[in-house]
C-alpha cells in the first residue's frame, strides 16, 4: 500500500504524518509537493495539518487551488481513501469534498491539548479497528475548529452516519460536538484532532494508531476483492 502525504507551503504536521505511516505501520510513504499533478500509483492520500498559505483569507481557502488538489478530488471521486487532519480537514471543506465550514473557536483561543473523543461510527474504512462508542485520547491544535453546517446538512450527516468522531466535551463551539466527518460515500474523512500525533505512548497516547491500521486493513481487504 502506497501512501502520499501532500505538502503545502505552511504545512507543519507532514513529518508526524510521515512518521505515523513509516515507523508505526512500516508503510511505504512519500511526500508529494503541492505543485505535483499526479497521484499515480498511490493508494491513500493524507492531507496534513499546519497553516497552508499562512491561513490567509480563510484556513484552507488558497490551498484548495494548489495544482495537486484537482488530482486529490479525482482520487476521492474514484472511491480511494483521503484523510484530512486539522488544516487538511479545512482544505477538504473549502474544496467541497466534505460539507460545512470552520469558524474561529468560540472562545477565540488557540487550543493545543489532548482531548477525549468518542468514536460515533466504527463502520468506516478509517475506524473499523475501534469499538463503537469507544473513548479515545487524541491531541488538538487549532484556532479555527468550530465546525458549522446548516440544519439540512446536519440531518443528512446524522442519517448517513457521517459523524465519525465527536468531542466528549465541546471544546470549541462545534455544532453537535463534531470533531470529524466523512463524505456520503465514506472514503473521505476530515477531522480536527491529530491521530498522527497519538501513535505511541511516549507521545501521551497511542489511540490514533488504530486509525491508520484500519485504513491499511480496509485497503488489504479491498485489494483481495480486486485481485
Amino acid at each position: 500500500m502506497r501512501w502520499a502525504v501532500i505538502v503545502f507551503p505552511g504545512s507543519n504536521a507532514d513529518t508526524e504524518m510521515y512518521h505515523a505511516i513509516k515507523d508505526v505501520l512500516d508503510g511505504d510513504v512519500s511526500y508529494v509537493w503541492h505543485e505535483e499533478t499526479s497521484l499515480e500509483g498511490f493508494d491513500a492520500v493524507l492531507l496534513p495539518g499546519g497553516f497552508s498559505y499562512g491561513d490567509y483569507l480563510r484556513s484552507g481557502a488558497i490551498a484548495q487551488f494548489s495544482p495537486i488538489m484537482s488530482e486529490v478530488v479525482r482520487f476521492a471521486e474514484e472511491g480511494a481513501p483521503v484523510l484530512g487532519v486539522c488544516n487538511g480537514f479545512q482544505i477538504l471543506l473549502e474544496i467541497g469534498l466534505l460539507p460545512g465550514a470552520m469558524r474561529r473557536n468560540q472562545q477565540l483561543t488557540f487550543l493545543c491539548k489532548h482531548v477525549e473523543l468518542i468514536v460515533e461510527n466504527n463502520q468506516t474504512g478509517f475506524t473499523s479497528g475501534y469499538e463503537a462508542g469507544e473513548k479515545i485520547t487524541v491531541p488538538v491544535a487549532h484556532g479555527d475548529g468550530n465546525y458549522y453546517c446548516d440544519d439540512k446538512t446536519l440531518g443528512k450527516l446524522k442519517e448517513n452516519g457521517q459523524i465519525v468522531f465527536t468531542y466528549a466535551k465541546n471544546i470549541n463551539g462545534s455544532i453537535e460536538n463534531i470533531a470529524g466527518i466523512t463524505n456520503e460515500r465514506g472514503n473521505v474523512l476530515g477531522m480536527m484532532p491529530h491521530p498522527e500525533r497519538a501513535v505511541h505512548t511516549l507521545l501521551g497516547s497511542a489511540d490514533g494508531a488504530k486509525l491508520f491500521e484500519s485504513m491499511e486493513r480496509e485497503w488489504r481487504e479491498r485489494d483481495v476483492i480486486r485481485t
Partner: peptide, 8 residues
C-alpha cells in the same frame, strides 16, 4: 470561487 465561503 475564492473571496467568500458561501457556506458561512
Amino acid at each position: 470561487k475564492l473571496l467568500a465561503n458561501p457556506v458561512i
